[in-house]
Amino acid sequence: MDVVKTLTDKLSIEQVKIELLNTAYGYHHTFLQRLDPRTLFLWYLVFGVVPFFIHSTPVLIGLAAFLVVLTIMAKVSPLIIFILTLGLLTQGGSYLIVGLFFGGNVTAMLPLLKLTLKLSVISMASIVVFCSMSPEKLSDGLLKIGVPGQVSFSIGYAYRMLPTLVEEYHHIFLSYRLRGKKPAKKGLFYSRHLFYYIKLLIKSFYPLMLSVAKRSRTMVEALESKGSLYGFNHPKVKQLKLQHLTIKRRDVLFFSLSISYFIALIWLS
């Protein structure tokens, strides 16, 4: 069970918090992070939607290769990549089992594998875009393209609360453990213990809700006195807030190069 032990060590709630925040705020300064949010939105519109309608395997493989490069460039957190691969592998595996069970052979699997490829292209595109935008950038970008101020503020605020909430959740979970009782028997494959933990993980959400409700009162009052009601949708405020957003040469370059690669792929196949 050493594997389980090291895995649980790595997957502590503390670690998850660190990964989440790193993904959100990206402490490393990558090329993609310097792009304007609008460029990324437009890019995502192409690379996150168009692959749905592409059926040629070579094009999809070409796109996947391109996105792997971008994923590396974006320095995506290992945790996210782990979750993605896990998802894709289990999906592929289940196809195989189901396919064989119903008397199919490997050729029946191919179209399904293609779907998996398609999905992985789209997921990688999403990861690249969202890891390259801090919540502030995302909300500024949304505001610029006409989303109401309240919505874009909520995104930034949700991220500001994220570490606090994860921490609070962690405290509550520990309080359950520090006063609870673990089943004496481990059960088959630790099943009793697993069940105990899962139960606590779910139970911990209820106290969390209550304390969040308590916090929000001060926050709403503070927002009111900080002029947010006046400012969220005022054109002058919007202009001040967004004056730092400019489309630069690198935005044009990045977008046009990606698109030409895409077109070249289609043309070649």
Binding site: Y25, P135, E136, G156, Y157, Y159, R160, T164, R215, S216, R217, T218, M219, E221, A222, L223, S225, K226, G227, S228, Y230, G231, F232, H234, K236, V237, L240, K241
Partner: peptide, 28 residues
């Protein structure tokens, strides 16, 4: 200006400078 007893919940932006600028920014 009012600083709450639970002042932590009064901070609304993730970054320090943004939080200090929040009010004047939203008053335009």
């Amino acid at each position: 200006g009012y600083v709450y007893q639970d002042f932590e919940n009064q901070l609304v932006s993730p970054r320090v400078l943004d939080d200090a600028c929040f009010a004047p920014l939203h008053f335009g």
